[in-house]
């Protein structure tokens, strides 16, 4: 039996090749870290499919092409379907030894692209779907998505006298995807890059559909300092507001189980989108977190 640690990759083992270079993403963009590292692990024989989102908007601006490997922009709702099509077409042409990866944001995954993703998993296609989750529609100017956390101020979930910002919690994409009986699924954070590399390496070896959900900070949308992007994504995990886990063979596994969380305020108040939160809002967030961890610790360890 292979152990997860068998898939460890040290930074010095990564290829020196940069497959995602010269893009026009904002300084400190967390999503670009996810895309860059993913391609380094998956290699140059990779087809990338990106729906209309930040990552495609910053890297396909004719005549500046920031992917050095094969890449295509799909319609917003179509990442899963186009991924399947690319993989099927390449297979049919007899092309061997290739990877097909999708990079969709939180809205492109949990909202508009949800159905196509479900279809792709259901078909059992040999594809890798990566959701880079920056917790709102950032490309269009910070609107609430199905993965926007409770209490987030966005341009469509304003915080004021009557509302604390977003009033719903994040849609539970990881478990929804797992409920398909997917070959392999995992959560990750750009704050824990080594964990992400390991999961990518594992994904590469899996036959059948793979879903990786990586928390990726967005200084522009989060109202945070650009240098804190990796720190914040780590703080999210350390405060228990995000988690690192895997699903395979009908089993969940929690990869990181902190004895003690850092205070959520330490994570939240470094970001403009949470600056307005009152004590009672923080309580709602903590209560939701604790419920989730109680369940995970009971069954995922």
């Amino acid at each position: 039996m292979t152990r997860m640690s068998d898939f460890n990759i040290r930074p010095k083992d990564l290829t020196d090749q940069e497959y995602f270079y010269g893009h026009k993403a904002c300084a400190g963009c967390g999503a670009t870290i996810a895309v860059r590292l993913a391609l380094k692990v998956l290699g140059e024989r990779t087809y990338s499919v990106l729906p209309a989102n930040c990552m495609s908007a910053v890297s396909f601006i004719y005549p500046q092409m920031a992917f050095t490997t094969n890449a295509i922009i799909s319609p917003f709702a179509s990442t899963g379907a186009m991924l399947s099509g690319v993989a099927a077409g390449a297979r049919a042409l007899g092309i061997k030894d290739f990877q097909t990866v999708g990079f969709a944001g939180d809205g492109g995954t949990a909202d508009i692209g949800f159905q196509a993703l479900s279809g792709a998993i259901d078909r059992g296609d040999d594809i890798i779907y990566i959701c880079y989750d920056n917790e709102a529609y950032m490309n269009t100017g910070i609107q609430k998505s199905g993965l926007t956390p409770y209490g987030t101020k966005t341009t469509t979930s304003p915080a004021g006298e009557n509302l604390p910002g977003a009033v719903t919690h994040k849609k539970n994409m990881f478990e929804i995807v797992a409920a398909h009986g997917i070959a392999y699924a995992a959560t990750a954070s750009i704050g824990y890059p080594n964990d992400f590399l390991r999961k990518l390496n594992k994904a590469k070896s899996v036959r059948g559909p793979v879903y990786l959900h990586i928390l990726a900070s967005c200084p522009t949308g989060w109202g945070s300092k650009t240098e804190l992007s990796v720190q914040l994504a780590k703080d999210a995990v350390d405060s228990g507001l995000w988690y690192l886990a895997e699903y395979e063979n009908d089993e969940f596994k929690l990869n990181r189980n902190p004895k003690e969380f850092i205070p959520v305020e330490e994570y939240l108040y470094k970001q403009g989108r949470f600056k307005h939160l009152k004590e009672e809002d923080i309580s709602v967030i903590i209560e939701h977190r604790d419920k989730k961890w109680e369940k995970m610790r009971k069954t995922w360890l």
């Binding site: 087809y47 499919v49 295509i72 799909s74 319609p75 709702a77 179509s78 899963g80 379907a81 186009m82 991924l83 399947s84 099509g85 690319v86 993989a87 099927a88 077409g89 390449a90 049919a92 042409l93 092309i95 159905q115 196509a116 479900s118 279809g119 259901d122």
Partner: peptide
């Protein structure tokens, strides 16, 4: 596929590799 929208998106994926 799970919809016509995906039927055409998948067909485009197929065509995008020259199939």
């Amino acid at each position: 596929v799970e919809s016509e929208h995906s039927a055409m998106a998948a067909a485009m994926g197929v065509s995008s590799v020259g199939a």
